[in-house]
């Protein structure tokens, strides 16, 4: 077969060659998507990125924009508040993705071990994922209240003094993380549960015959076979968490005393409150570069783990 096609390439014109047909088909199929993206996504992104080299208040006519070259780029590097917002963002992303993955996986394992009411339980856990963020932020704002909030009332049953959830700068970021994890947990769980369900039972049977403990089965079978699911979940949630905005915007506005100031919130403030559009764009480009690097590293790490067919 290989020989035949190799022989063919010498005699057939290039447009009949398989490689050409494949390439042409691929590009033809990709064309509508790429054209659409060029108009509605790349175009606006490039138009925004051009702002990087200008000073523009995001409000006045563009003719008022002043060209500043690399001025914005160098200013970002020395901007302590911006760099500080990176620290908060990373803490947030690690807490949210870490606890989402760990708790979500644990719940999925638990739910995988029962046979009744799985659909009901799964749907119920998924419920918060669908509830609108604005309503949930309002609700959690009430639950986080110091004196009469739901959470502190429960804590008072076990004699824990009231926690200043959103007021104490040392814990505000974690309180928001708690709410976000709660809201996203069902998503993690549904995806992990689906991944677990797809692992053939025979693998576990074989391991049981070999006398492997539950712990060993988890490490030797579950986790390796769950790797693609994990990759998907982690890549997507890391990209999302590093761009966290709405819960911060609704609940704390970056406060108290900058404790929940995250990068995208600061970019938003810089653009729409400080009216420094060019500078905000530059900050966003820094964030973009960081996310890109982290994503590429994640994809590499997983590839070295033995899954070569992802990219």
């Amino acid at each position: 077969m290989a020989v035949a096609s190799a022989a063919q390439t010498h005699t057939t014109p290039f447009w009949r060659r398989r490689s050409f047909i494949q390439a042409a088909t691929g590009w033809l199929f990709a064309a509508p998507i790429l054209i659409y993206f060029t108009i509605f996504v790349f175009g606006p992104i490039l138009a925004s990125l051009a702002m990087m080299f200008f000073k523009w208040n995001g409000f006045g006519p563009l003719t008022q924009a002043e060209f500043v070259g690399l001025g914005n780029v160098t200013e970002v590097a020395g901007d302590e508040k911006f760099l500080g917002s990176f620290r908060n963002t990373f803490v947030y992303a690690i807490v949210v993705v870490g606890s989402g993955v760990i708790v979500g996986l644990m719940l999925a394992l638990v739910l995988n071990g029962v046979t009744k009411f799985v659909g009901f339980v799964r749907s119920t856990y998924y419920l918060p994922v669908m509830l609108p963020m604005t309503a949930m932020a309002l609700l959690w704002g009430l639950m986080f209240q110091v004196r009469y909030g739901f959470l502190n009332q429960i804590l008072s049953f076990v004699n824990i003094p009231p926690v200043r959830w959103l007021i104490n700068p040392d814990i505000a970021l974690y309180s928001i993380s708690l709410m976000v994890v709660w809201k996203g947990l069902g998503w993690y769980m549904v995806i992990f549960l689906a991944g677990l369900k797809a692992i053939p039972e025979e693998y576990y049977e074989a391991a049981r015959v070999d006398g492997a403990t539950g712990w060993q089965r988890f490490w030797k079978i579950t986790l390796p076979l769950l790797k693609p699911t994990l990759l998907f979940v982690i890549v997507v949630t890391v990209i999302g968490s590093l761009q966290v905005f709405s819960p911060i915007f609704i609940m704390t506005q970056g406060g108290p005393a900058n404790a929940t100031n995250v990068v995208v919130y600061w970019v938003y403030m810089t653009a729409f409150q400080f009216l420094r559009f060019g500078y905000a764009t530059t900050q966003a480009v820094y964030l973009f570069a960081v996310i890109l690097v982290i994503t590429v590293i994640q994809l590499r790490l997983f590839r070295e783990g033995g899954l070569t067919s992802y990219y």
Partner: peptide, 12 residues
Amino acid sequence: TMMIPGFLTLIP
């Protein structure tokens, strides 16, 4: 393109 905050491209 998933890595750029959406509101930044709002105006264009």
